[in-house]
Design a protein around this nucleic acid. Sequence first.
DNA 1: GACTGGCACTCGTTACAGTCGAGTGCCAGG
DNA 2: CCTGGCACTCGACTGTAACGAGTGCCAGTC
Lengths: 340, 340
Amino acid sequence: MGLDDRKLAVLRAIVEDYVATQEPVGSKALVERHQLGVSPATVRNDMAVLEEEGYIRQPHTSAGRVPTDRGYRLFVDRLSRVKPLSPAERRAIERFLVGAVDLDDVVHRTVRLLAQLTRQVAVVQYPSLARSSVRHLELVPISTTRLMLVMIADTGRVEQRLVELPAPTPADDVTDMRRLLNEKLVGTRLSDTPPLVQAVVEESPSHLRPAMTTLSSVLLETLVERHEERIALAGTANLTRGGLLDFQGSLRPILEALEEEVVLLKLIGEAEPSTTRIRIGDENEIDNLRAASVVSTGYGPGATIVGGLGVLGPTRMDYPGTIATVRAVARYVGELLAQN
Amino acid sequence: MGLDDRKLAVLRAIVEDYVATQEPVGSKALVERHQLGVSPATVRNDMAVLEEEGYIRQPHTSAGRVPTDRGYRLFVDRLSRVKPLSPAERRAIERFLVGAVDLDDVVHRTVRLLAQLTRQVAVVQYPSLARSSVRHLELVPISTTRLMLVMIADTGRVEQRLVELPAPTPADDVTDMRRLLNEKLVGTRLSDTPPLVQAVVEESPSHLRPAMTTLSSVLLETLVERHEERIALAGTANLTRGGLLDFQGSLRPILEALEEEVVLLKLIGEAEPSTTRIRIGDENEIDNLRAASVVSTGYGPGATIVGGLGVLGPTRMDYPGTIATVRAVARYVGELLAQN
DNA sequence: GACTGGCACTCGTTACAGTCGAGTGCCAGG
DNA sequence: CCTGGCACTCGACTGTAACGAGTGCCAGTC
């Protein structure tokens, strides 16, 4: 399977033209628009080889060629260079992110920015609790038998939950419990918390024991298991660009997938360190997204990663541009988080 | 413009058939499927009148009739009775809403439930802050110059915001400020809060003045102006049912509108007391939604209204069913809130 | 051996004509 | 006021033909 330089050039040209025009590209058009230095007939021969190898295909006989998922994969792996951002984009990113007052604010601005720049669907994961440490725990008495438990993480995330106590609990006891919890838990990573919470309960004076037990179970259940991850989404309207040609005509499966938080997490919850992940069409584990591509990466203050972000679009997308934007946004968000 | 009973019956039949089949309905089919007791020719005459009055129209000559927005309006106002919920639906609602632990949880479950039952896009507004009262204000020291301001409302809403203090502030001062704020503000409606906040600042001892000033401005800005309203959304995938015939072929404007929080608020932020509002097609103030209908209502514990919820779908929707579901869900949510 | 020009072929797209039939409007009669 | 009948309209569908973009293959050239 020799794929010499020219064949690769042909593939690159096909991908670029197809992404730009959205139409199958033929041999003649190719030689006209790119300086390949050979005739259409030669290109046709190359195309035949590329097709045999599965990098491109013909929608019908007597139509031009279209890249396959495999073709895009080869393109992003070997044929494209990450496109530098335009100064305008750079400025847009900076302008967009200054003035954020809040983690919520940062996340919302980021997801909108990403959607706008890439003109695709953007997804941003809130800093993962598992990757955060406890900065402070607060118990706010609502009534004698009810507390609001508020946890503030170093990443800026704040989670709260109403706790129904087994018995009326005086204010002093609440103060004691607050102190106990903070003494033992502040500074610990949330992923390491469960055993510590257990320990706090066991070490607590017996008259606090019942209340502490409820508290701890709520703490574990809510903060570690249930709510663990949050997600923001923007730009779904961008799915309708490309007039129903993308996504083989039906947005249905895509929209369905985007409604499932679990699915979204799988999408952008990064596995490996800070690499940019690119899933093209069939490479997606999620069936509903077999017609889409996802570009995602991790972000966080400095070198640590606390969450993921990315975009989802048609397989026929501008990979170099998208990759550049996703990385740049992730970097800026990381810097922003580092400042807090 | 005499619209006698039979003409109204014809209109009702047209609406019902069109909603069910999604196809223009002709005179012959009508008499077959409904017991009108007259011949197709008579129905045709009635149709001609209905068309003249603007209640129905023909997509093309020699096609059946389709209701106009005006026709739907007449239908919901005078021709339909709210459909009682099926026991199954009733059970679904109850099952879905038990076990909610949180305001967040309630809202999320509600919006999903509503989307599922109506098979349309559901929108739920969080209890409006303007309609809530302060239950508690908490100041959590993060560092000597940083506080987390947490406000808990009686509706269960919790808002927080990071505050950058003008100067390092000792813990005792923070305690004092917390006490001051709570003394003056707990129990007040948030819409009445601004002047009170002002008063608290002015009455506070001079050494707390600078910190209190920043605090109060953050309080006012964030909690009253900016974040005021929150919204949850679900069921966008339902827009793709009805195969692009609804919404005149393009989801674009709808999806765009749904991304704008302001727009959503306008949609379901109710004006009048507890009436159910129905906006059909052109009646929508928002241009992007001229091809859609919105059914919304207020909800809240007991008779008071703290927020709105509703659904958005094609003008060609099952109004009686949708209205019944929206109202029922609103009522259940109200009861749920009343229990807290 | 690699490239090229030429050529026959495929097949989707477009245009046009013709038929079918659902549905209408109108009218004369009960 | 209702009804049956009838002529008419017009979109949907079908079949045919011309068009053309694009291909694969082959013989010829460097």
